[in-house]
Amino acid sequence: MKTIPLEAYLIVSIVLFGLGVFGMIVRRNLVTVLMSMELALNAVNVLFVGADSHLSLVDGQIFALFIIALAAAEAAVGLGIIIAIFRLRKVDSTDEITDMRG
């Protein structure tokens, strides 16, 4: 059985990652920024798993598992923060929480 070459996974991963980064930059809503981040994380997962099938390893899959776990934690904490911010400030877009500006 001929497997899909690594380069194909690479292309998909890079496209997804770039879109994730672009989304993080241009999105105004906090929740959508967080979702763009999930996109980037998934791109990394694709790369790990693709490299695994290319190299006949399983370490990448384990890392992908870890990333999924961390993404879950990150989503939990990040969404908790968003809810807290919203409760305190009644805002949900990034240009309204600029207290840390110099």
Binding site: M24, R27, R28, V33, T94, I97, T98, R101, G102
Partner: peptide, 12 residues
């Protein structure tokens, strides 16, 4: 400081 406008997206 205009670079560090506190906007999350700019940091990204």
């Amino acid at each position: 400081k205009t670079l560090q406008a506190g906007k999350l997206n700019l940091y990204a």
